[in-house]
Amino acid sequence: MNIFAEGIAWLFDPAHYGGVDGIDTRIGEHIMISVIVLAIAAVIAIPVGYLIGHTGRGRVIVVVSGGVRALPTLGLMILIALNVGVGLEAPVIAFVVLAVPSILAGAYAGFDAVDRRTIDAARAVGMTEWQIVTKVEIPLGLPLLMGGLRSASLQVIATATLADYVGAGGLGHFLFLGLQTRDYPQMLAGSIVVVLLALFSELLFAILERLVVPAGVRAGERADNQEDVRAKSVRSRTATG
């Protein structure tokens, strides 16, 4: 039997479910870590990205935070853990550092990509700055923001396997244990679950994107395809006006 089949078999062995080391428990921990990290990163990155995008000041922050992506997450996490101890804090902080740049870039780029003429038009019809942000820039920037969240989520789900290095659990358990005991089917099974989670996150964000992006923005995108331009442009105007 090849290793792939063994990995699949490992995954479907009922003995590997339930208890502290069960696949189900570990998936739960993994999702919990990822959601906490994404929530914290979003709360930090979205307002900052919006502020930079709206004012056009501080673009250097976006550039610098992009560079932060090069920080090795494992090293950062261990460094933090040496100060705060083992447990959830160190991986959460390290993964937030990993997730912030993508979300920040998405939020900023979403605002930055809005046509200046659209904003001028909004100002011309008497919108306040706040209205411009909430009624023009945020809706029009949503596709790019969702893209940032989507890639941050993917990165965090893949990297959250490191959390088990400092006792925070998650699917990394199967990777570490499999590696150290040369139980490669177990490693592969753990990896497959991580891949499935990542695909699930992609799907979730694809759906979310459809739900939160206003019809007018979607219509605008389709209008680019030059299909039925007149009908779409009418809707587009009503949505953004």
Binding site: I78, A81, L82, V86, D164, Y165, V166, G167, G169, H173, F176
Partner: peptide, 9 residues
């Protein structure tokens, strides 16, 4: 789990 083989962590 503390995967540093009895190291500083």
């Amino acid at each position: 789990a503390v995967q540093d083989s009895g190291g500083p962590l």
